[in-house]
């Protein structure tokens, strides 16, 4: 594949590599790079790394916060998941070590599996709809003139910029059973059964509303990322293909898709990670009238188990599902990212 001249990150990297390998450059007079003169050449290790404590000192504050607020809780969570830690322990009774009991309780509880299955279905459906809609809008942006494109971009940006809680509040108002504009519209379209229709009570309709909101919020990111990718495909490729007599669809399938595939992959992966841990949307909609037991996803399930019922041990064990699932997916994302960026 030909290198894309406009990819800012890669050209930056090349520029940097070129500069670093430039011969005869003056070496910094002190140890401040911590490298020998030859150390700049990317893959080779410096012959004698100098042990300057300065970089470590610079990392200390960030590291301290991460250890205190993420590392230690992770450890706590691991310990707690092996303990009987309920309301009694909350009031001072020492927690009892129960080995894998929490995990056994969870795994044999059919409700957990229902929640996990529901989360996965919700995640896959939302990620798929978001990707298809976002990619379609990105392609649309390349097909229209400047005016319509800017209008579309502004519309998407507005939706993207809304804080989640404000969006959720507005959508509740749009879907309001009595005065909501959506019910009004549906009734005026002749669907009389929507007069005073309550959207959140029924499970399927609850998740329809949740999907509409999540997709509305997430499509802009996908659309902008894919559009950025599309604009980097060199135009000569299309011209050449056109001269060779290809149809528009063939050009899309054979040129656009393969070239934009890396962006699609990364964006899809992020979307899956984000949709898997969706919490706020579900939680707020449950508040607004959904039946909790029928609409819990992993996040709200853990919240209600731990902070609602005080079953901290069980909740800690359940949290590991979310963590392991997300980190497993993230590792792939990180691998892609690391391959592309020079560390």
């Amino acid at each position: 594949m030909p290198p894309s001249p406009t990819s800012s990150a890669s050209s930056r990297a090349e520029e940097r590599a070129g500069r670093d390998q430039g011969p005869g450059r003056p070496t910094p007079p002190t140890t401040w790079t911590g490298r020998g003169p030859a150390g700049d050449v990317a893959p080779r290790r410096p012959r004698r790394p100098r042990r300057s404590p300065l970089p470590y000192a610079l990392l200390v504050p960030a590291l301290a916060v991460l250890v205190a607020a993420l590392g230690y809780p992770l450890y706590r969570q691991a310990v707690m998941s092996f303990q009987e830690y309920g309301l009694a322990q909350q009031f001072g009774q020492p927690p009892e070590w129960v080995g894998l009991d929490n995990y056994v309780t969870l795994v044999t509880d059919s409700y957990l599996w229902t929640v996990i299955a529901r989360s996965i279905v919700f995640c896959v459906a939302n990620a798929a709809i978001t990707m298809v809609a976002g990619t379609a809008l990105a392609v649309l942006m390349t097909l229209v003139g400047r005016g319509p494109r800017l209008t579309l971009q502004i519309g998407l940006l507005l939706a993207w910029a809304m804080p989640h809680l404000a969006s959720l509040t507005v959508w509740q108002w749009l879907f309001d059973s009595q005065y909501g504009v959506i019910n009004w519209l549906l009734v005026n379209l002749g669907l009389d059964q929507f007069a005073g229709h309550s959207w959140l009570i029924d499970q399927l309709s609850f998740f329809t509303v949740a999907t509409v909101i999540v997709v509305w919020m997430s499509v802009p990111f996908v659309a902008f990322s894919v559009y950025a990718g599309l604009t980097q495909v060199p135009g000569e490729l299309y011209e050449a293909a056109e001269i060779d007599g290809s149809t528009a669809w063939q050009r899309f399938r054979q040129i656009t898709v393969p070239l934009v595939k890396p962006v699609l992959l990364i964006v899809a992966l992020l979307q899956i990670i984000w949709d898997l841990k969706v919490f706020t949307q579900i939680f707020v909609l449950q508040d607004a009238g959904g039946i909790t037991a029928e609409t819990n996803l992993i996040g709200t399930y853990i919240y209600r188990l731990g902070l609602g019922e005080g079953e901290f041990g069980l909740a800690a064990a359940a949290s590991w599902f979310v963590l392991l699932l997300t980190v497993a997916l993230s590792l792939y994302y990180v691998r892609v990212l690391v391959r592309e960026e020079e560390l």
């Binding site: 993420l70 230690y72 809780p73 969570q77 898997l276 841990k277 731990g306 902070l307 997300t326 990180v334």
Partner: peptide
């Protein structure tokens, strides 16, 4: 750093609350 930024609040808030 890359992996940590993917850790969801939803997977850790129970123990952060306890902390």
């Amino acid at each position: 750093v890359l992996i940590i930024q993917m850790i969801p609040a939803e997977g850790l808030f129970i123990s952060q609350f306890k902390l």
